[in-house]
Computed example of a mutant assay.
Amino acid sequence: MKQDDNRVTEQPSPYEDLRGLSLRGLLEAINREDAKVHRAVARTIPVMERLVEQVVARMERGGRMFYIGAGTSGRLAVTDASELPPTYGIPFDRVIGLIAGGDGALRRAVEHAEDDLAGAWRDMMPYAPCAGDVLVGVAASGTTPYVVGGLREARRRKLLTAAVVCNPASAAAAEAEYALEAVVGPEFVTGSTRMKAGTAQKMMLNMLSTAVMIRLGHVSGNRMVDMQLTNDKLVERGARLVAEWGGIDVEAARGLLLRSGSVRRALETLNGEDDVS
C-alpha cells in the first residue's frame, strides 16, 4: 500500500457543494463532524496512559519534554507548551515547543520550513537535548519531514519519543515509541486539517500535559496551586481558592496570597507549614 493511501486527512469531504448549503445547514454539518473527534481521541487513551507514565518518570529525574510541529500542528504544540508555566508554575525550559520556521511562523507561514528533515533537531540543539528528555512530534498527516526527521534523530539518541497524528500507519508514528493516532476521518473542507485534526491534536496535547502536571504534583485536589500570579484575574482566582480552602474571607486571603507569593505557600501557611498535596 502506498503511503498516500493511508492519508485519511487528505480524502475528499463527504459533503458536496458547501456554498450551496444553508447557513444553518453549514454550521450543523461542521458540528456533526466535530462530534466524531472525541471518539477518535478516546481510542488513544491506552497508549497515552503508558506514555504519561514514562514522561512523568523522566521529568521526575530532571528530564524535559519537547514538542515539535509545523503549521497548525506546530502552533498547537507551542501554545500547549507556553501555557504550562503560568498554569502550573513550572520553569519555561521544562516543556519546550518548537515550530518549523521559528516563532515567526506562529503568525505567518514560512515556506518549505516543514520540508527540512534535519530542521527540528537543529532547532533543538541550543537546548542541548539528551537521553533523559522526551520528544513529542505533532503532525496531522504524520508525514511532515520536520517532525519525522526530528523523531528519527531523537530516537537514535535515546530520547523518549511520541507522535500525535491523525492518520493511521504514518511515517511519524513509525519513528516514535508511542503513537497517539486519532483518526478523525476526512475534513469538512477537504484537506483542511485545522478543523477536526487540529481539534483532536489540541485535545490530545491537553490530556497529555495536564495528566503529566497532575502526576508531578502541580495540582492539589482539583486546584492549580502553583499557578503564576501574573495578572489581576489570577490573583483573584488564587485569593478565592485560599479563602475557600482556609475558611477565611477573600480580603484576608488576598493579603496572605500577595505576602506569600503563591497559592501553595499561602495554603502551607494556613496549614501550619505542612506540605500541600
Rank of each mutant, 00 (worst) to 15 (best):
T269P: 00
K2H: 03
E60S: 14
L76D: 00
S73I: 01
L151H: 02
I68W: 01
R155C: 09
Q3I: 15
D115I: 14
R39G: 10
L241A: 10
L241D: 01
G217R: 06
E49R: 15
R32M: 14
Q11I: 11
K36P: 00
T79K: 10
N206G: 03
G272I: 10
A120K: 01
G132P: 03
S82K: 12
V52H: 01
G132W: 02
R75D: 01
A179N: 10
M207R: 05
I96M: 03
V47A: 11
D249Y: 14
V165K: 00
M224S: 09
S73D: 01
V164Y: 09
V41H: 03
L216I: 08
D116P: 07
T193D: 06
G132S: 05
R32V: 15
S170Q: 09
I214A: 13
L208P: 04
A105H: 08
E236H: 13
A35V: 06
Q54K: 13
L229C: 02
G89D: 02
A35F: 02
L216R: 05
A128H: 14
E236C: 10
E49S: 15
T143E: 10
A179Y: 05
G71F: 07
E83N: 06
D232H: 07
T79W: 06
I30K: 00
Y67I: 05
P145F: 05
L117P: 02
P12F: 08
G246M: 02
D275H: 08
A140S: 02
D5L: 15
G62T: 14
